[in-house]
Structures are given as C-alpha cells and as structure tokens.
Amino acid sequence: MELVATAQFRKAMERAVSAGAYTQRIAAMVADLARAGTSVSHPLLEERKTKNGAGLLILTANRGMCGGYNSSILRLGHRCADDLKAGYEKLQILISGKRGISYAKDRGIELAASFDQFNDKPQFSEVVTIADQILADYLAGKIDRFDVAYMKFLSVSKQVPVVETLLPLSELGGEAESESPAKKGAEYEFLPSPESILEEIVPTAFRVKLFKCFLDAAVGEQIARRVAMKAATDNADSMISILTTTYNRARQGQITNEIIEVVSGASALQG
C-alpha cells in the first residue's frame, strides 16, 4: 500500500507541476497588460457589498486510509461554513469526494451539489464545468462570494488545510515568473484590445485556480495516504518483532520445562 501510494503521489505531483506552467504564463500576461497601462478591473475582481449568498466547496477524498486528511479538511470546512452562515443570508455547500458527502449526510447538511468523479487525476474539462456553473451563479448574483476548503500543497513534507476565497478574485494566477531583461522593454500590440483580453483572461484565471485546488488536493491526498501507510507498515513491523520475541520466549520456556522434566525423571530413576 505504501508503494502504491508513493507511485500515485509521484504521478499526481507531476501533473501538479506541469499545470504550473499555465498559471505562470497567465500571471505573466496579466503583468504585461498592467504594464501596458490597462487598469485591471473586472466584475470578478470587485468586492461586493451585498451579502445575499455565499458558496463553499470542500474538497475531500473518495477513499479513506489516508490518516487525518479528510477529517482535518472537514473540520475546517465545517467551521468556515458556520462563519459564512453568520455573515450571509444563504450558503450553498458543494462537496467533492465520497468521504465528505457521507459526512454531510450523517449530519443532515444540505448540499447544493456533490461530486465523486474526481480521483487522483482531476481532468481540466471536468473542473471547467463546475467552474462555469459557479461563475454563472456569481454573475447572476446568486452568490457574492465563493470559497474553497482544500489541502494546500506547500512542499512534500508540508501540506495545510486552508480556506481560500476564489471569488472575488484577489489576484490573477499567483506569482509571475521572473522576467527576462529582454522581455521587459517589449511593447506589446494587443488584439483586439487590452480590455477585451482582460475580459477573457479573468474567468480563465478563476478556472485555472480552481483546477489548481483540485490538483493540490489530489497530491495532498496521496501524500497523506503514503504517510498513513508508512506508519501502518512500520507499526506492523514493530508488532511482528515483538510477537516474534514473545513466541520465541514461550517456545524456549516450554523446551526448558521439558528438559527439566526429562532430567528430573532420569535422576529419579537413577536414585
């Protein structure tokens, strides 16, 4: 199990890394737009004063055997849901992963939507369907805020459960890649116009960010599973060594007993 989890973790990690290229380029493009003097404003970037509804998506795993992974996210998600309920009139809760869905069912929490098709390989096309639904709800004013609770990947040895606000978007696509000096001086021509590109780039940035959350969650799940399985393997190993010692002692004791009986029987006959 540990080996399986390690192999799956590698795959998930590779996917997460290769997805990073897109995010970085989007961020670089936004930086170029900003340098060209476009004011970066878009309905998705503006904080809303109305508090009609909020959306919360919780990303859990489909399977267990991954230590405290699911429970830590659900605990955080539950707390966050309580906070949002206090601040907004309506709260839509969306959950991905069978573990989270059964958690909600047990506690009688009503779900606006649930997904269990995401395993260790989330597909962009599947995430886009969800992202577009959320965007439509946001633009229609059904929700004024959208949060995601998931396991954020910081490094192989550190992942933390976090709640991130994706709508309104606070920034576009993470850190921009370091610019090469030749690129800095470049004056771009924009087709059709910087505004039109911005209009398209902002929803794209949201979709990609949501996709990144799914990828991070998949990596986090595999790491948690590997750690849990490693602990289980180590535990089993130490248990085996304790049991072997106990067994050997018992066997030794029995042999000693038998020898004593034989010897004492023999000496009784001699005497």
Binding site: E187, L191, I197
Partner: peptide, 19 residues
C-alpha cells in the same frame, strides 16, 4: 486562429498578445 481570423507569425515578429 485568432478570434477574427488567422494570424501568421514569422521570425522577428512584433511582440503581440491576442485572443
């Protein structure tokens, strides 16, 4: 394929960002 038709880019093209 740009939003309104095809666009060709050869060596030394002017810097451009397009939909």
């Amino acid at each position: 394929p740009l939003y309104d038709g095809e666009y060709g880019i050869g060596q030394g093209h002017t810097p451009v960002v397009a939909r």
